[in-house]
Design a binder for these strands. Sequence first.
DNA 1: ACGTTTGGGTTGAACATTCAAGTCACCTCC
DNA 2: GGAGGTGACTTGAATGTTCAACCCAAACGT
Lengths: 171, 171
Amino acid sequence: MSADTDQGAVDVAWLSAAQQQDWAALVRLVMTLPAALDAQLKRDAGVNSFEYHLLANLATAPDRTLVLSDLAEAAQGSLSRLSHAITRLERAGWVERRACNDRGRRVEARLTDAGVAKLEEMAPGHVREARRLVVDVLTPEQLAALGEAARAITAVTLAEAPEACRELGDC
Amino acid sequence: MSADTDQGAVDVAWLSAAQQQDWAALVRLVMTLPAALDAQLKRDAGVNSFEYHLLANLATAPDRTLVLSDLAEAAQGSLSRLSHAITRLERAGWVERRACNDRGRRVEARLTDAGVAKLEEMAPGHVREARRLVVDVLTPEQLAALGEAARAITAVTLAEAPEACRELGDC
DNA sequence: ACGTTTGGGTTGAACATTCAAGTCACCTCC
DNA sequence: GGAGGTGACTTGAATGTTCAACCCAAACGT
């Protein structure tokens, strides 16, 4: 269809049988693991994993506060997605927005006490799920290898994520 | 909040520093890799990865045809999500629905010739992206280890996926 | 001083996904 | 031979995400 992206079929090396197996396993992983984690959070705490990550990121930030664009980068989401999400969290009383007098038009989000409480309430269940689905089903060596592979891959994907390119100064 | 799920904070073993590192790397992986793959497909072919998987699954099925519930299971999505997605693909002319005279109220989806063409047009780009983001950044041993870990994890997550429990006879 | 550009956010409409309800065909069991 | 189940979808409304447009404040250039 789109005639401009037609370097199309020029000689793409296909994958070996073993590579295909591993690729397929990875695809199944990235399809089912986030879904499972999301389901647990939704069921037990009524938040989705993006919102969870927002709260978690704020909790570890100095003064439980972050400028929105930094938070967006940390949680790997667009500013728009973040803005909508913060609106929901604000409505729930877990974070509050406030303009920072600093410079420009920046806004920062701060985790409220209720937000801290909420996070402390749901963190154990989340960790339990992380153990049950990942940590406990792998040997220590397997987990280490998985982490290493994940770091190698995200070295590429993070460098290209529209939100994170500032970190590497390449855009 | 929900007082019934309150085995809450009872003594959850937290993760070691190394485990936390690996867990965090995995989380970043499952946040960014699907997003990157999705973006490539959307940009170059105008479909999302769920739709791509539907077409790919149909392409390898006998007579390029699958009963919807089997397809939903294969692509790890709810029947409802599938139904909406098939409607879109049908509108684009890449698949067609037809009742199968078989028994019950089953419906099957068949990949049309246009669908085959579309898939052949976009597969190379997708494979190239898979190489670029995953296969080529890992050593063969790392890829194999990743595949192994992924299989261990999905052994749990797939067994619990509401759509896939039939396979293991546990529901 | 005054336009222009850039950075940082917000907003609303379009689109995708989920959730709950509804439909229809077949089966089973009084 | 109806009454109630069950399996396999469909549908519409609610929710979440993306996309494009917009707004405002500060910095830059002349």
